[in-house]
């Protein structure tokens, strides 16, 4: 299903090559634990917005690019917060990474997300990539490649709502909403009001992996 969050799909597709993303059936929401609720997500985003302003000394040349699907509404929210503080518009858009993924051949061809680069482009800008969950780091690697084909930013930074660890590439986030220690077998699901109706970050239970004993 499309409604399944990318975080969860990533955890299955990227996590040790588990081959069957449909193995879990309907999301085990009954036993999932809420680790961030709506107000906590709001506060984390407000803090990140201020950190971006602080680190970029006012954020004159900042462009926010969300990675579909849930990075896009997060980038939009961050942009609105920065605008609220600084009183000027912040260019924001979306950057689809599907065509740059390193696991395309492990699954049937995926539908593409939207790429929507602001009209001023990314050349010479400070691009902040925004995504919901940082896990293996492979999505960010793909995003850097995609960005490279669009232009040459002055610098690239990464803002993330949840960092769940287990990096497979040398990638780290510049702005983190919450560090969430997880086991590889747990699932992290981010729900946002724009696509899902309400805000929450859920930590799902460990579940048996197909093809793994025990």
């Amino acid at each position: 299903m499309c409604a399944q969050s990318r975080a969860e799909r990533d955890s299955q597709v990227f996590g040790e090559g588990s081959a069957d993303p449909r193995g879990s059936g309907p999301r085990a929401a009954a036993t999932a634990r809420t680790v961030l609720d709506g107000p906590e997500i709001e506060r984390a985003l407000t803090r990140i917005a201020h950190e971006i302003l602080e680190r970029t000394k006012g954020g004159d040349d900042v462009t926010l690019l969300g990675i579909p699907s849930r990075g896009v509404p997060l980038a939009e929210r961050l942009a609105r917060r920065i605008e609220g503080v600084e009183g000027r518009t912040v260019p924001r858009g979306s950057l689809d990474i599907t065509m740059y993924r390193d696991d395309l051949r492990l699954a049937p061809a995926r539908a593409l997300g939207r790429t929507d680069v602001p009209p001023e482009g990314v050349d010479g800008r400070l691009v902040v990539l925004v995504d919901d969950v940082l896990f293996s780091g492979r999505t960010v690697r793909a995003a850097l490649d995609a960005l490279n084909d669009i232009g040459r930013p002055r610098a690239v930074q990464l803002a993330i709502l949840v960092d769940r660890g287990h990096r497979e590439l040398p990638v780290r986030a510049d702005y983190v909403g919450k560090n969430l220690p997880t086991s590889l077998r747990e699932t992290v699901t981010v729900q946002l009001s724009e696509p899902d109706g309400h805000d929450a970050v859920l930590l799902g239970p460990a579940k048996p992996r197909p093809g793994e004993e025990g």
């Binding site: 740059y100 539908a111 593409l112 997300g113 790429t115 490649d145 084909d149």
Partner: peptide, 22 residues
């Protein structure tokens, strides 16, 4: 799906690097 995918890929023709590594 073909039409929607084509609509996204149409953007590639407007970029300076008209290539995807897929």
């Amino acid at each position: 799906l073909v039409l929607d995918t084509a609509a996204e890929l149409a953007q590639v023709g407007d970029r300076s690097v008209k290539k995807l590594p897929t």
